[in-house]
Design a protein around this nucleic acid. Structure first.
Lengths: 228, 228
DNA sequence: ACCTTTCTTGTCAAGATGACTATAAAGAGG
DNA sequence: CCTCTTTATAGTCATCTTGACAAGAAAGGT
């Protein structure tokens, strides 16, 4: 090893993968996309979608590719960010695998084509039902999403392009698992410049007064935050 | 590749390293520990300390080890967290290297023993003066630290075990580069349960009324946050 | 026509914030 | 020893934000 500890010509062998925590909201539930493993180890149990990073592939590109593969969602249709890297020596029993986990937030996803993939309620999963350390990764993803709802405008990523304030509120309620006061939420959202922009149209949800519809604004951070 | 995209027995070859963003506050400046590269590429330029992850070494252990190696700071003496993973295909010209960056916050560090390591003011570094993509990693670390000061009690990690409110305030001022109202800061800190705990002692800084000293409390999050 | 439902606006008291003033407790210098 | 300067800490007050709730608006159901 060089004095810098940085001579990659003699490196220990690692495999690098991406794993995806793909979240969506179907009120009143927060859901995650899981795939059933077809091979050992942990054959038959549910796992996060993931795969190898190609030799010349950027990390986020690998995640984009896997997301499109599993959900049909293309670049720009979903929010995608790096979540964290999980590389405990024994996390995969076969060899040393370092997984760069990514968090994806999607709106109105189609049902998965494959039987081996399905949406699961986050609050109905037990830790032991996921393969490898995926329960830990999922927990990190859910906590990241929950906290980013507080101080960013990311909630709009869970909504269709055009949405009502009530739909936006249902995102918060599903993610946080608690009810918010509709009037105060409305006031708060409207008071934040660039969070949402009115379309001028309305949408009737069947019963009750029709709601005005909005599109996402260009603000990315919330000052002040929406508190849990 | 298996149907899961997860057969690590035929993996593309990656090197995995850890890089460290080690920050400290020497009022009124936020400083970062850099090492001068002794080898090509980028020989002679400054870089973040880092090194290989051992074949059976956990990521955070590799970071701990490097931190102790460069600063003499042992486990538990500093805050250490994973920052993010940087793996662009050409970030190292020699081969594919994925670096798991970590953020360390230390108090009162000793001067580095080696000439090849030194503390640098964060606000006096130009992007082009750092090797590889280390300017990007440093920027991510600084932004993480700045924002965590807002909503966590991490500022105490930059202080000696026993500190005054003014010292705590100087951490915020150094990190954010702006002055805070001493009276309001004092009120805010004292109003937050578990942020600091009084020792009963005082400490004279030469001139002015001596300040009461405190130790870090057991709270980890700030409700409400201290706003920038 | 009336009730129910949902969206939206308004009210009000309590709490938090920012700017500022005032007092306390030390050292410095005559 | 007595003021001046400096820093720490306490207090004041107008303004802003919040949470709880009431009330009006606009639809569908019966």
């Amino acid at each position: 090893m060089s004095i810098d500890g940085y001579d990659p010509t003699k490196f220990p062998p690692f495999a690098v993968t991406v794993d995806l925590v793909v979240l969506t909201v179907r009120p009143p539930h927060l859901q995650v996309l899981l795939v059933r493993r077809g091979e050992s180890p942990a054959k038959g149990s549910w796992a996060l979608p993931g795969g190898f990073v190609g030799p010349k592939q950027d990390l986020v590109d690998a995640a984009q590719f896997k997301l499109a593969d599993k959900t049909g969602i293309e670049v720009g249709q979903a929010h995608l960010e790096q979540l964290g890297t999980f590389g405990a020596p024994k996390r995969d029993p076969r060899m040393r695998v370092v997984s760069v986990a990514h968090l994806a937030l999607v709106a109105d996803p189609p049902e998965p084509e494959l039987d081996s993939a399905a949406w699961h309620r986050v609050d109905a999963l037990s830790d032991s039902s996921l393969a490898f350390d995926h329960a830990e990764i999922l927990a990190a993803g859910v906590e990241r999403a929950r906290s980013k709802l507080e101080y960013t405008t990311l909630a709009t990523s869970f909504c269709s392009p055009e949405f009502t304030i009530a739909e936006l509120r249902s995102v918060y309620e599903a993610a946080w698992g608690s009810a918010l006061d509709a009037a105060n939420f409305h006031r708060k959202v409207m008071a934040t410049d660039g969070f949402v922009e009115a379309t001028g149209r309305t949408e009737s949800a069947g019963r009750g007064r029709p709601a005005r519809t909005f599109v996402a604004g260009d603000a990315r951070e919330l000052h002040p935050p929406i508190v849990r």
